[in-house]
Simulated assay, not measured.
Amino acid sequence: MKIAVIGGTGLIGSQVVEELRAAGHEAVPHAKSTGVDVLGGQGLDEAPAGADVVVDLTNSPTSDADTVRLPATPVQPIAAAGVASAVAEVAAGAPLNGVRDIAGPGVFPLDELGRLTLSRKGDDRTVVTDPTAGMFALVKGDVLTDPKARLAPTRYTDRLA
């Protein structure tokens, strides 16, 4: 099966491409570095040509050199490897005609998660709570999963350790 992976050179996208290829699929990564600019529109018509499935793993940056802006939206972070496995499984499987919820086992406000992550990585940038920042700014309430969601076993704090 041919699968176009938009954002296929990023943290999760590259792992999805690797998993799909290991399973025998033709996974084609698309990103700005391959001539596909999602924001500018270049290459978007050509990227999915001939693909049986298109996976969108793009993300929007919300940081600069002085600060990281994040809303306080509650989220359940999941390891990139867990996301990649779930996405590859769904992309190569029969159509769900629905949504597959996946998440990590812990709940964090996104701004606090950012502070924790930067601190553990020795990054001295400041996290500013900004209810208008990024794609989670559009969410009213929280981004917690359905109780029937598939939960990954690895806790975020264990992954950072």
Rank of each mutant, 00 (worst) to 15 (best):
N97A: 10
D66R: 13
V53S: 07
F136V: 08
L151E: 10
M1E: 11
P71A: 04
V68Q: 01
G106F: 02
P105E: 00
L11I: 13
R69M: 04
V68K: 03
V99L: 09
S33C: 01
V55M: 13
G104K: 07
V17I: 00
A133N: 07
A91Y: 09
A72T: 09
V99D: 10
T117A: 12
T129S: 12
L39G: 10
P109N: 05
G50S: 12
A103I: 08
A92F: 11
T157V: 15
T145L: 11
V36T: 03
T132Y: 09
A94P: 13
G10D: 03
R21V: 09
L151D: 09
A51N: 08
A92S: 15
S119C: 10
A149S: 02
E89A: 15
L70E: 02
P71G: 06
R150H: 15
S63N: 12
V75T: 00
G40D: 07
G82P: 02
T9S: 13
P95C: 08
R150T: 15
T157G: 14
N59S: 13
G134C: 05
D101Y: 14
D45H: 12
A47R: 04
K121D: 07
K140V: 04
G7E: 08
S60A: 13
E46C: 00
S85W: 10
K2E: 01
P105D: 00
A152E: 15
D64N: 13
D124F: 05
V17A: 00
N97C: 07
D66S: 11
R125F: 01
I78H: 06
D45T: 12
G35M: 04
P29Q: 05
V28D: 00
